[in-house]
Design a binder for these strands. Structure first.
Lengths: 108, 108
DNA sequence: GACGATACTATGTCTGTCGTAGTATGATAG
DNA sequence: CTATCATACTACGACAGACATAGTATCGTC
């Protein structure tokens, strides 16, 4: 099976995470499963990539985190998107359209 | 002016260079100008990025290089795409379509 | 004779991904 | 009742590619 480019995804992991957080608070494992589902298994994010993205996003003020006990008795770290994160997501979407258009010119 | 994502381009600089070499032998400065033209000035590749890409491409056998005196009396390093480079270009185009499709699912 | 365009090379920094490993809990199977 | 799997992370270090900065050298133009 042909693989997707992790060097391209690189620029959009933060955006992908925000995509899910826009739909409601979530946590690492769930987002990881959702990415798999939405991409039809074409993209499986690495745990380390995911959690370091959470840290970066929080440091930049795009998300906030809080711990909460889940149904299964486990303690999870949940993440919530901030207004600034919403704005960042919108900007990245704009950027994506432009970038896609430019690269398309070099593809035949 | 909205910028394009260098983290996305990152995965496609080699492909962009090969795009031009498929049209004929060329050299650094010319390719750099061509990238600017084709992208309508939206993407200006950095010199260091360009020349390190040439080195990588040659190391991987996707291009060969040779020196030749240009009209203006200057000595230039020209690059030529190899069969392997042609194949690599085609693969990267395939990959681009897949990657684009996956990322689009996370963009609204 | 200064300056800009051309045509590079060298070196080091930074960012994000990823490999590897480890910790800890709950659910499930044998 | 114990092994294994799914869940839910954290720590650490390696690596690749982009890029900042700087320097070299030639040619044409004013």
């Amino acid at each position: 099976m042909q693989e997707i480019s992790s060097d391209v995804i690189r620029g959009y992991n933060d955006t992908i995470i925000l995509y899910f957080l826009r739909q409601g608070d979530s946590y690492g494992y769930e987002i990881s499963k959702n990415i798999k589902t939405v991409s039809d298994g074409k993209y499986l994010i690495k745990e380390t990539t995911l959690y370091s993205a959470f840290n970066r996003l929080e440091k930049n003020g795009y998300i906030t985190s809080f711990s909460r006990d889940a149904d299964n008795g486990k303690r999870r770290t949940y993440y919530r998107i901030t207004d600034s994160g919403q704005e960042y997501y919108r900007e990245k979407c704009e950027e994506w359209f432009l970038t896609k258009d430019v690269i398309d010119r070099f593809i035949s």
